[in-house]
Computed example of a mutant assay.
Amino acid sequence: MPIRKANPEPPFNIIRASHVAFDVSDLDRSRAFYVDCLGYLISDADSNAIYLRAVEERNHHSIVLLKADNAAVPVIGFKVSSEEDLDRAAFWFAHKEYPTSFPERPYQGRTLCTCDMFGMPLEFYYRMDQRNCMLRNYAEYKCARIQRIDHINCFTPDVQASFDFCSELGFWLTEYTETDGGNSQLWAVWMHRKGNVHELAFTNGRGPRLHHIGVWTASALDILYICDVMDSSGFVANMERGPGRHGISNAFFLCVRDPDNHRVELFTSDYLTVDPDHEPLRWSLRDPQRQTLWGHQAPASWFEEGSFFSDVRPRQPVLQEQPIVAR
């Protein structure tokens, strides 16, 4: 499998992963999970939507909860560096014959909507309404004390194709998993724009589907504390995996599921990757420490379950290799 360098002059400049929208079946129950349990701040809300941000975030929202009949993910969002980059992005996607449109989005400026080759819904914007950053207002640090969105992890039916697509857009590879043997194949990739381990990750599986969003906490103690909060607030059964430490990314983590089974990873302790000569780290698919440096092995649900993107039919993966899973 070819490992290619990131495009040093991408067609437009993506700054970072910005936000995700979740269709949820019960806004009150979702509010109890994200606000009362995890500690998110509400930027705005009405009977059909709740816009959330974490304490460090100045942008209006990083999670949008939308009332719907069925759980799904309408879109994942990325911030670009200028309005001109939006025009460059629209030109690039249209030239590649991907659909493009500029719908109105609440609290966002001009927003480009498009998708990747598998139909995964993407949106790009430059301006978003601002709210006060609560980083120094410690009274607002509640529950998990989440500071910001960190990354988005997705299932893809073809990791090589998704990797090539994102490399062309300037994403840098930091770590990857591949099969062993003479004809090794990519099984998962972790790629960044902002200078830590990942902005966007792809895992082999039935997809496209959203695997999880990763949200940053300041310390491992925040993650340990939220375990007690989840127990005392009635959400202990929503803890899926962890706490523990990944081999990949070196992150201390806890994975939880919201009331509609959307997965959120609380995450801290990864590392900087800003050097242009940073060499990506290879993991064998058979290495048990790739998924868990210490702690319980990942359950089967970690490799099988994910959130469907709205109106996108997942495909079976081209690679049938399986990692080690908990028994």
Score class of each variant (00 low, 15 high):
Ile3Ser: 10
Lys5Glu: 14
Lys5Asn: 15
Ala6Gln: 12
Asn7Gln: 13
Pro10Leu: 13
Pro11Gly: 12
Ile15His: 13
Ser18Leu: 04
Phe22Thr: 08
Ser25Tyr: 08
Asp26Asn: 08
Leu27Cys: 06
Asp28Cys: 04
Arg31Ser: 11
Ala32Trp: 08
Tyr34Ser: 09
Val35Asn: 08
Asp36Gln: 14
Cys37Phe: 13
Cys37Gln: 14
Leu41Gln: 10
Leu41Arg: 12
Ser47Phe: 02
Tyr51His: 10
Arg53Cys: 01
Glu56Val: 00
Glu57His: 02
Arg58Tyr: 07
Arg58Val: 12
Ser62Val: 12
Leu65Tyr: 02
Asn70Met: 11
Ala71Lys: 04
Pro74Val: 14
Gly77Asp: 07
Glu84Trp: 00
Asp85Glu: 08
Phe93Lys: 11
Thr100Lys: 03
Glu104Asn: 10
Gly109Gln: 09
Gly109Trp: 07
Asp116Asn: 13
Gly119Asn: 11
Met120Ala: 15
Glu123Trp: 00
Arg127Gln: 10
Met128Pro: 01
Asn132Phe: 09
Arg136Asp: 14
Arg136Gln: 14
Ala139Arg: 10
Tyr141Lys: 00
Tyr141Glu: 03
Ala144Ile: 14
Arg145His: 14
Gln147Ala: 14
Gln147His: 13
His151Gln: 07
His151Pro: 00
Cys154His: 09
Val159Phe: 02
Ala161Asp: 13
Asp164Trp: 03
Asp164Ala: 12
Asp164Pro: 01
Phe165Glu: 00
Ser167Glu: 07
Leu169Thr: 15
Gly170Tyr: 11
Leu173Trp: 00
Glu175Ala: 00
Glu175Gln: 01
Thr179Leu: 04
Thr179Ile: 11
Thr179Met: 08
Gly181Ser: 10
Gly182Pro: 09
Asn183Pro: 11
Leu186Tyr: 01
His192Ser: 15
His192Pro: 13
Arg193Ile: 12
Lys194Ser: 10
Gly195Pro: 12
Gly195Ile: 10
Val197Thr: 05
His198Gly: 03
Glu199Asn: 15
Asn204Glu: 07
Gly205Asp: 05
Gly207Met: 09
Arg209Met: 11
Gly214Tyr: 05
Trp216Gly: 02
Ala218Asp: 03
Ser219Ala: 04
Ser219Val: 03
Leu221Trp: 07
Ile223Pro: 06
Cys227Tyr: 11
Val229Asn: 10
Met230Phe: 04
Val236Ser: 14
Met239Glu: 08
Met239His: 09
Met239Gln: 12
Glu240Ile: 04
Arg241Tyr: 08
Arg241Val: 05
Gly242Thr: 13
His246Ser: 14
Ser249Glu: 05
Asn250Ala: 15
Ala251Ile: 12
Phe253Val: 06
Val256Gly: 10
Val256Glu: 10
Arg257Pro: 03
Pro259Ser: 06
His262Ala: 01
Ser269Cys: 04
Leu272Arg: 11
Thr273Asp: 01
Val274Glu: 02
Asp275Ser: 04
Asp277Asn: 06
Glu279Thr: 07
Glu279Val: 03
Arg282Cys: 01
Arg286Lys: 02
Asp287Met: 01
Asp287Lys: 00
Gln289Thr: 10
Leu293Arg: 04
Gly295Gln: 05
His296Pro: 00
Ala298Trp: 00
Pro299Trp: 03
Ser301Glu: 00
Glu304Trp: 03
Ser307Pro: 01
Ser310Lys: 00
Arg315Phe: 10
Leu319Glu: 09
Glu321Met: 06
Pro323His: 01
Pro323Trp: 05
